[in-house]
Computed example of a mutant assay.
Amino acid sequence: MDETQSILSTAKRTLETESKAILKLVEQLDEQFAAAVQYILKSEGRVVVTGVGKSAIIASKIVATLNSTGTPAIFMHAADAIHGDLGTIQNNDVVVCLSKSGNTAEIKALLPLIKKGKNKLIGITGNMDSVLAKQADFVLNAHVEKEACPNNLAPTTSTSAQLALGDALAICLLELRGFSSADFAKFHPGGALGKKLYLRVADIVLNNQKPQVSVDSGVKEVIVEISEKMLGVTAVMDGEDVVGVVTDGDIRRMLSKYDNIGELTAKDIMTKNPKSIEVDTLAVKALKMLQDNGISQLLAFDNGTYSGVVHIHNLINEGIL
């Protein structure tokens, strides 16, 4: 086996090991999981997620997921907690503790301090006979048969299992809270993800010029309008009404069809019934319309009134595509 095939074989074995372990978690779910979710939902405090080593890194990711899906959460490193950070935990908080063995020195030292504060404790552990499992109010079974590491030492499969259970907690809470895409957008205002959830056609059209000519405009005027407004299109107006569009493609087709263009007007070369969209529509829906119809521009309307043009390049620049 050459080196490339050896690498691919190892990668596939790793993914298969971890995927099988995560599927095994489905069988290990029980009423304890449901009770933990219900308690968090009713809690008036935050979710404090803690752990040490690789489990601490997973705990930090779970905190990020909870916060972004409507459940207030905060990370507390278990080692730091017993050296002054225990004040992170407030009276109404729920503590989630991650530990593969459930028996590390830091966890053993932390557990009685949490119990003394009367906070409910949710343990996520791969050892159901551990100190953590026995002292937790709710125990989520994260047991895995083996790590993906060939020496069965480096936390790989076990941390994947912890992360998957954390995701399951977050999504259950999201659904029970009725957390919508609009709510999600409030927590993700930046980047492409946020823009897909809140950016509307009106936000784009506002920054574009508004190309338009009349039905009787000559070809030269049409070409100048398309060129100056730099959107590859112009609306064709009959009074206040849009009756068509002329695109740069229409111009090319006109040049190949007619030898004498001096007498032609916008009405002669326009495309009738152009694709359009309302300004209050999400920009991501405008992208879908453009892609579905194989076009580059849409006319935008505000309650029937022509407002401008949204171009596919606008969506690319915004990071939507």
Rank of each mutant, 00 (worst) to 15 (best):
I58Q: 13
L25T: 03
H311E: 06
V245C: 09
V144A: 05
G102K: 12
P189N: 08
K100R: 14
D268P: 13
N103M: 13
V95Q: 09
G249T: 08
D137P: 00
Q38W: 02
S158M: 12
G123T: 00
L169D: 07
V48M: 05
D216V: 12
K196D: 03
P72L: 04
V205E: 09
L23P: 06
Q212L: 12
F75N: 09
L41S: 09
K195F: 05
E16I: 14
T265V: 13
V96N: 06
V242Y: 11
H313P: 06
M289Y: 09
A164P: 07
S181A: 14
L197W: 09
A170H: 08
V242R: 12
K42M: 03
A182N: 12
Q209E: 14
F301K: 10
V284I: 15
A21I: 07
R252C: 06
N152R: 08
K275Q: 11
I204G: 08
M237P: 03
A11R: 11
L169Y: 14
N91E: 15
T234R: 01
A64Q: 11
V222R: 02
G102A: 14
T159S: 14
E278I: 00
D248R: 08
N92I: 04
A133W: 03
N207L: 15
T71C: 01
L169E: 05
A34P: 01
V52A: 15
I89C: 09
L86I: 15
I277R: 10
P211R: 11
P155G: 11
K146I: 01
S160E: 02
L197T: 05
N317G: 09
L231R: 00
E225K: 12
G178K: 13
V49L: 08
I226D: 01
A170Q: 05
E3S: 11
D268V: 09
G126C: 04
I124F: 07
E175V: 01
L121N: 12
L176H: 10
A56F: 12
K115C: 04
F187T: 07
L111V: 15
T234W: 06
H313E: 04
V309M: 01
Q209N: 13
A79I: 14
I223M: 15
S217K: 10
L193V: 07
Q209W: 09
I204C: 10
N317Q: 12
L132G: 00
F138L: 06
L132W: 04
A136K: 03
T157P: 14
I82Y: 10
D167L: 05
E175D: 14
A64T: 11
G166E: 04
A266F: 04
V201M: 14
T104W: 10
L290T: 03
K100V: 13
P189Y: 03
V213I: 14
A164G: 02
A185I: 05
P189A: 03
A142N: 07
R177V: 04
P72I: 03
A35S: 15
E44F: 01
S43E: 01
A235F: 00
D137I: 04
P274K: 02
V310N: 01
H313K: 11
L173E: 11
